[in-house]
Write a protein that binds this DNA or RNA. Structure first.
Lengths: 110, 110
DNA sequence: TTAATTCATTGCAATATTACAATTAATATA
DNA sequence: TATATTAATTGTAATATTGCAATGAATTAA
């Protein structure tokens, strides 16, 4: 198969898994960390920065943009990228709610 | 290819992506949420709870166990599962550091 | 001992992901 | 206009993931 049966899960569960999936590749983690570090728009030096081929980086950027986590604006022949602050914050809320679930210590039940 | 070039990324970036990847399927999110909700060991009713076939659930459990996020103990013919609190906390630290990066508002640079 | 129960493992088919060469599209520069 | 630059798109090969039927392993119950 290779495709998840999303219809048997809640919207929240599917949303969490979609966000997590996009973080599930180190290149996309690296791209996001770089955008945070620079803290301004990056105009296309990501290929040198990351070390993968240009089409590969372009594809990862597309996935990040598709989920709304980054924005890309054309500037002449190059394209500038930056974090979409609003959507990043919204994503954080969803992920934190999942990650920070309370675990009442339970004497290691089993 | 289908395989990530992990050697070009930092250990931290690879670790983040491994944790994220395991959350990148709604069934694994649902399993973890159920373990948190029950807040004690679950002895094999996950197949009914989630709605996927038994071998499928077993496989997802294996991945969660492999990363250390859950523990499984044999009890007779059944197996009890619960969250591994210590490892979950360690994972949270790694993920929160990534997700909660500071973004200095930047007048939407581009 | 035999049958039932529970869960892991194996094997397989369908689909997804990753990476990149080649190409295209768009703009900028000589 | 012709060439260079930058990045997206297309096509393709290699590998990974998902899901389940069939089977196996271990324990329990009859």
């Amino acid at each position: 198969m290779g495709l998840a049966k999303t219809e048997m899960f809640t919207d929240q569960q599917n949303e969490i898994s979609l966000f997590a999936k996009v973080f599930g590749h180190p290149a996309r983690v690296a791209i996001l960390q770089h955008l945070f570090k620079i803290n301004s728009c990056v105009c296309g030096d990501l290929v040198n920065e990351i070390g993968l081929a240009q089409p590969t980086i372009s594809q990862h950027l597309k996935e990040l943009k598709h989920l709304g986590l980054i924005k890309g604006n054309v500037e002449g022949t190059s394209v500038c990228y930056c974090i979409d602050a609003e959507n990043w914050t919204a994503m954080k809320t969803v992920m934190n709610e999942f990650l920070n679930q309370d675990l009442i210590e339970n004497e290691d039940c089993c």
